[in-house]
C-alpha cells in the first residue's frame, strides 16, 4: 500500500502516459474518460483496495467492477503497474488475441471481475457480488465505477433502488462524473442533476469529492466503508485530465490522438 500522496500522484501521471501510448498505438479508444479516471484507479489499486496481484482470485479481495468499460485503458495500466501482468503487454490493447480487449472481457482476463461496455449493466453485477459476500460473511468491499452515461440507463436506476432498499453497505459506487458523454456535454444531452438528491431519495448515502484529488478519493472511501448504507461517491472529474487540449472536451471521448497530438500530450504529461 502506498500512503505518500506525492508518490500516488506520480503513479497516476505514469498511468496517463501509458494511456496515451496505448490508445495511440491501438489507433482507437477512449482517451478523455481514461485520463480522467486515472486518479481513482491509482487510489483504488495502490491504497484503498485489499488485493493481491499474485493471487487475483484471493477470496478476501475487495472487488472492483468497472461499469463504464470504455475507460478500461486506465484500469489495465493500473493493474500492470500494480503487478498483475508485465507493463509491456499494455501495448497489446485492442489487438487480436489480446486479453486487453477494447472493452473488458472477463473470460479473456478474469482479474477484471466482470465484462463490461454496454452502459447500465454493471452496478447490478456489483450488487450481486456484494450480496454474495454478505451471505458468505466475507468482509470484502465491492467498489463499482459508473459513468454519467450509465445514469441514463434504466437498469442503473433499478439497481440503485434495489441497493437502497436492501441497505447494501458493502458497496461503494464511485461515479465518474466527468460531465461529458459521447455526443456532447451531459447537461445538453441528458442532464443528471440534482444527482446527489436523487441518490439520497433512493436511500443511499452520498459523498461529493474532487475525483482528480487522490487524497480526497482515499478519504471518501475510508468514510464510506463505515456507513451502514450503500454509498455513492460523486467524483467530479475533468475528462482528459493532464492534456490541455483534451480537458473537458467531449470530442476526445472516443478517438485516438494522431502521432503529433500524442507527442504533444506526452510532452505535457512528462513535464
Amino acid at each position: 500500500m502506498v500512503k505518500d500522496i506525492k508518490k500516488l500522484e506520480k503513479i497516476a501521471q505514469q498511468l496517463r502516459i501509458e494511456i496515451i501510448k496505448m490508445i495511440t498505438n491501438a489507433g482507437s479508444g477512449h482517451p478523455a474518460g481514461s485520463l480522467g479516471i486515472a486518479d481513482v484507479m491509482t487510489a483504488l489499486y495502490f491504497n484503498v483496495m485489499k488485493h493481491d496481484p499474485k493471487k487475483p482470485k484471493w477470496n478476501k479481495r475487495d472487488r472492483l467492477i468497472l461499469s463504464n468499460g470504455h475507460v478500461c485503458p486506465a484500469r489495465y495500466a493500473a493493474m500492470a503497474y500494480a503487478g498483475y501482468f508485465p507493463k509491456k503487454e499494455l501495448m497489446n490493447l485492442r489487438k487480436f488475441g489480446s486479453k486487453l480487449q477494447g472493452h473488458p472481457s472477463y473470460t479473456d482476463f478474469p482479474a477484471i471481475e466482470s465484462s463490461s461496455g454496454p452502459l447500465g449493466l454493471n452496478l447490478s453485477i456489483a450488487i450481486g457480488q456484494a450480496l454474495a459476500l454478505k451471505m458468505d460473511k466475507n468482509p470484502a468491499t465491492v467498489y463499482c465505477v459508473t459513468s454519467d452515461g450509465d445514469h441514463n440507463e434504466g437498469n442503473t436506476w433499478e439497481a440503485i433502488m434495489f441497493a437502497g432498499n436492501r441497505k447494501i453497505n458493502n458497496l461503494i459506487n464511485i461515479i465518474d462524473r466527468n460531465h461529458i458523454q459521447l455526443s456532447g456535454k451531459t447537461k445538453n444531452i441528458m442532464p443528471l442533476e440534482p444527482l446527489k438528491e436523487k441518490y439520497l431519495a433512493f436511500n443511499w448515502s452520498v459523498i461529493v469529492i474532487n475525483g482528480n484529488k487522490i487524497s480526497e478519493i482515499i478519504k471518501a472511501c475510508e468514510r464510506a466503508k463505515k456507513i451502514k448504507k450503500p454509498v455513492a461517491i460523486i467524483a467530479n472529474i475533468i475528462p482528459g485530465r493532464g492534456v490541455s487540449f483534451m480537458e473537458g472536451k467531449s470530442e476526445w471521448h472516443g478517438k485516438a490522438p494522431k502521432k503529433e497530438q500524442a507527442e504533444q500530450a506526452l510532452k505535457q504529461l512528462t513535464r
Binding site: I125, I127, G128, M161
Partner: peptide, 28 residues
C-alpha cells in the same frame, strides 16, 4: 428466505444481480 431475492418488477437488475452472485460463486 435468506436464499431468496425479491427484485420487484425490475428484470434487468434481476439478471445483473444473478450474474454478480454467480461471479461470486453462487448458482443463481
Amino acid at each position: 428466505p435468506s436464499r431468496f431475492i425479491e427484485c420487484g418488477v425490475a428484470e434487468q437488475n434481476m439478471i445483473g444481480l444473478a450474474a454478480g452472485l454467480a461471479l461470486a460463486g453462487k448458482t443463481a
